[in-house]
Simulated scan of single mutants.
Amino acid sequence: MTTHLELPGYAHVYSGKVRDLYAPVGPDGAPVPDQLLLVASDRLSAYDWMMSPEIPDKGAVLTRLSLWWFDQLSDLVPNHVLSTDVPAAVAGRAVLVRTLDMLKVEAIARAYLTGGGLEEYQAKGSVSGVALPDGLVDGSRLPEPVFTPTTKAPVGEHDLPMTFAEVEAALGVEVAVEVSRLTRAILARGNEIAGARGILIADTKVEFGVAPDGSGGLVLADEVLTPDSSRFWPAELWEPGHPQPSFDKQYVREWLTSAESGWSKSSGEPPPELPAQVVEQTRAKYVEAYERLTGETF
C-alpha cells in the first residue's frame, strides 16, 4: 500500500507507482489552479509490481537528472517545470509544475533493439508496425530511432503496443505526428550527449501534455531520460548478440528472473523482498548514471 506524506500548504491528489501529486492550497483552503507539486518517491516498480524495500535517494537522483535533461532539451520542447522551491520535507526530489492535460499514450522511442521490441521483431520483423532490416540481434543499433508507442494502462495492468494508426485515432493525426517526431528527437539528442559521456540510451519513454485551455503545443512532463524511464548501457561494454549490462532497473529485473529470487513472472504472486545487496547495487547504478551524465557528484 502506497503511503504519502502530509505536506502543510498542499493537498494530496494522487499517488502513482513511483510519484505523488499534491495541489498547492491557498489561504482560503482552495487548491491553487494551474499548479501541482510532483514528488518523486524512492519506490521502484518492475514487471508492474511495486518492489520492497525502496531504493534510497532514487527520487532525488531522478529529479535532479530530469532537471538537468530539461535544460539540455529546452530548445527542442518546452517542459512543465515552474519552480524547485518546494517544502523542506521533499526538497531535492520534488518540483512545482504546470497543470497539463496528459496525452493518453506512452510515447516510446528505441535506438537499439532489445526487450519487448526484440521479441516483436523476432516474431514479425517489425516493431509497432515499423519494418526493420533483417539480421538484427539483441543490442543491435537501429538505423534511426523508431517510435514504438504503447497504451497507458492503470496501475497493476500492462501497457499494450499501439500501431501509429491507433495513436492517430487516439490523439488526432497532427498531434500523433508531432509526438512521434519529438520522442525520436529527444532520444537522438539524449544519445548525442550521453554517448560523449560513455552511455548509450537504448530506448526511452516520455510523457507529453497540453495546456488545459488548448493553447500552445506539446509540453514535456513527468521525468525525462532517467534510469527509470530509459535503458542506459555502458558504451564500453556494448556488444550486440546478448543482453547488455545496464545502469537502470534492469538490474532488479534480472535478479527477479534469476534462480536466486525463486520467483516466476507468470505466477501471479507478488515478488519477494529485494536483498540488501540488490538495493545497494541499484542505488549505486542510479548514482553512477547521474554522475557520468552530468559531471556532478551526487
Rank of each mutant, 00 (worst) to 15 (best):
T2Q: 13
H4S: 08
L5S: 02
S15H: 14
V18T: 15
G26S: 15
P27L: 12
L37F: 12
L37Y: 10
S41G: 14
D48A: 05
I55K: 11
G59V: 06
A60R: 12
S66G: 14
S74H: 14
P78E: 14
H80C: 07
V86Q: 04
A88P: 03
V90M: 06
L96I: 11
L96H: 11
M102Y: 13
A107D: 05
I108A: 05
A111F: 12
A111G: 14
E120S: 06
Y121P: 01
V130R: 12
L132Y: 06
P133Q: 00
D138K: 00
T151F: 07
P161V: 07
A165F: 02
A169T: 07
A170M: 04
G172L: 10
V173F: 05
E178N: 01
A196L: 00
R197V: 01
I199G: 08
L200R: 04
A202F: 11
A211M: 05
G217P: 08
T226E: 04
D228T: 02
S229D: 04
A235N: 01
E236I: 02
H242Y: 02
D248L: 06
Q250G: 01
A259L: 07
A259D: 12
W263V: 05
Q277T: 14
Q277M: 08
V279L: 13
E280A: 15
R283G: 15
G295V: 01
